[in-house]
Design a protein around this nucleic acid. Structure first.
Lengths: 158, 158
DNA sequence: GCCTCATTACTCGGATACCGAGTGTCCGAGTCGCTCCGG
DNA sequence: CCGGAGCGACTCGGACACTCGGTATCCGAGTAATGAGGC
């Protein structure tokens, strides 16, 4: 089970975007995070399609959060980049083989699929309670309260 | 985020193995589940390496559970087949770019990695409380109490 | 002085190569059961 | 009749191709700021 590496960049980018009000170009975000600009842009496009960020074209365009950071959950960002399909996909092997049960007898998912779905629910439920604002606060606290201020300064000056 | 499709076969195979005491060849399990025999064998080898099943060579050989089904968690099966690496891999992008923090300042994982790790913990903790015996009981209950008996009958006669 | 418009530079967005992991398969090494032979 | 050795068939295990999604990149379409020109 492997998550797309773009998820990490998307989360960090959302945290960064939460620190400024003006639009930020993808190239600027890539420079700050030291990531390939073109590929980071791909992730930002996914966030745009999901309605998490809005894009502005033109001279001083870029990406902006559509909502306050406290209203954007980590789950929505992960699902926007990595897809919302569950990790475990039941292929209904209970219907195959010599003892396969008939389709009409499969009113609800089999017990294994139910268990895996419940585990996924525990995972997504946890991420749904974490917001971008929480993550930003956590990063700031780790740095002693200087990280977010440094980011704001760098974004506005450089 | 996508899990290996072999996980489903491995879980079903463990449930099936829990119904008999004698060794079951991979080919028999593949026939019962309608899966490619060679590929299912690959998953069973992974279970063998993890110590979940024991393999017996020779004429009436096959695979057997090493422990009672009630002592085998779904998590261990999933990790045996799919690997125990966490889905989210922090590449420490906080150390990169113009505002990268020094390595010695990174005593503990960054807030984002901590959140993702905690979510994974919720997921694995859930699966750790589910055993193969629970799954077998669930499948049996769905069928009205006939499924496991049918499996035992088919395995011993055919 | 102010409005309008063409220019220009900058942005996003989708379409396009490349690569590694997962998927699927095969054949060889090893082992157990069976049979035959000798005592 | 019993024990042991040889044989055969069956099993697992790792090594070998193939495909698809993820990774990385580029260039074209579109847009907003900007400056010049005219009223």
């Amino acid at each position: 089970m492997k998550m797309s590496s773009g998820v990490e960049w998307a989360l960090h980018s959302c945290v960064t975007l939460s620190q400024v009000r003006e639009p930020l170009p993808a190239a600027r975000l890539a420079e700050l995070h030291g990531t390939p600009p073109a590929y980071l842009a791909k992730q930002l496009q996914a966030l745009s399609r999901a309605g998490i960020v809005s894009s502005t074209a033109g001279s001083v365009g870029g990406y902006t959060l559509t909502r306050p950071a406290s209203e954007i959950t980590a789950l929505s960002v992960v699902q926007a980049v990595d897809g919302d399909a569950p990790a475990y996909r039941c292929t209904e092997i209970r219907q195959r083989g010599p003892l396969g049960v008939a389709l009409e007898s499969c009113a609800r998912p089999c017990a294994i699929a139910r268990a895996m779905a419940a585990a996924q629910e525990a995972w997504s439920g946890f991420l749904a309670q974490i917001t971008i604002a929480d993550l930003a606060a956590g990063i700031d606290a780790d740095s002693g309260g200087t990280a977010m201020a440094d980011v704001r300064r760098w974004l506005t000056t450089a």
